[in-house]
Simulated scan of single mutants.
Amino acid sequence: MGNPTASGEVPPSMAIKIFSAGAGACVADVITFPLDTAKVRLQIQGESPASGAPKYKGVLGTITTLAKTEGPVKLYSGLPAGLQRQISFASLRIGLYDTVGEFFAAGKDPTLGSRILAGLSTGGVAVFIGQPTEVVKVRLQAQSHLHGPKPRYTGTYNAYRIIATTEGLTGLWKGTTPNLARNVVINCTELVTYDLMKETLVKNKILADDLPCHFVSAVIAGFCTTLLSSPMDVVKTRFINSTPGQYTSVPNCIMTMFIKEGPSAFFKGLVPSFLRLGSWNVIMFVCFERLKKELMKSRQPVDYAT
């Protein structure tokens, strides 16, 4: 995500990168969370058809239906877990990306291989740390108090407690395999594409290393990431939200979806996924880059004094 030393500037520290990534991700999550909720509802639609259950059509249709039938607040159900996820997950996978990439490059200019290895490493570690927050977020977004049994959870911490006591601690890491596959793809595609696009635009003097460059790079990264990760994202959502015994394994979940709903099931919620991930990328990367610059400016007097 940039080679600041090329312009003679002191590169931001790892702590600044981690903080900026976490803060930027939280801002992006707050703004785009209704899109994420709409994506989850579209992804689980058709899983267990119920008479009288609302049918969701399109992004705006899903958001409107949710707001009308369950109230506008429902669009932000699971937000606390979502913010916990960004603090424990995005801060590490994004904040550590440059540092790990430099390690794999062994002091040389970063290559495509070192960037991919960095994305794989930081994405994999972050998934294992942040998986419980993902499980709780998805289940709170998916549950409805309409036309069915009483909701399983009354809130974020109630969900953590019930999952741990009824499914064991391993229940909080349910769906780690598809989520790992999804986030490895997302991390590599998102960060490497953003990195390469930004570097290309700046080196070829098409755009300066500023807001327009960050915006274009983030949109392209969001599109590529959504397209590649959609099948794994749908499987991850279905498996995490499933009741005990509904699917015997991740492969069973995949086969059940394929047999009952066909290949198109793996691309359910693609449009809200792109709208969410694309806008999330733009907000996160713009905030991330700006925060890094501002924090570096605030450090300058101290650095000069020393």
Rank of each mutant, 00 (worst) to 15 (best):
N3F: 05
T5F: 08
E9N: 10
E9I: 10
M14S: 11
K17D: 13
A21T: 06
V30Q: 04
L42D: 04
I44G: 00
P54E: 01
P54Q: 02
L60Y: 00
G71W: 09
Y76E: 03
A81W: 15
G82E: 04
Q84N: 12
G95A: 03
Y97R: 01
V100K: 03
T111A: 07
S121H: 06
T122W: 05
G123C: 09
F128A: 14
L140E: 05
P151D: 06
I162S: 08
G171A: 08
T177C: 11
L180G: 14
A181R: 05
V184P: 10
V185K: 03
C188K: 01
T189S: 15
L191E: 11
L196K: 14
K198F: 08
E199R: 13
E199P: 03
T200K: 11
T200F: 14
L201V: 04
K203W: 06
T237W: 07
F239G: 04
Y247S: 04
V250L: 02
I259A: 15
S264D: 12
L270C: 07
P272C: 00
P272L: 02
F274A: 01
R276V: 00
M284K: 09
F285S: 10
V286H: 00
V286D: 07
S298R: 12
Q300S: 06
P301T: 05
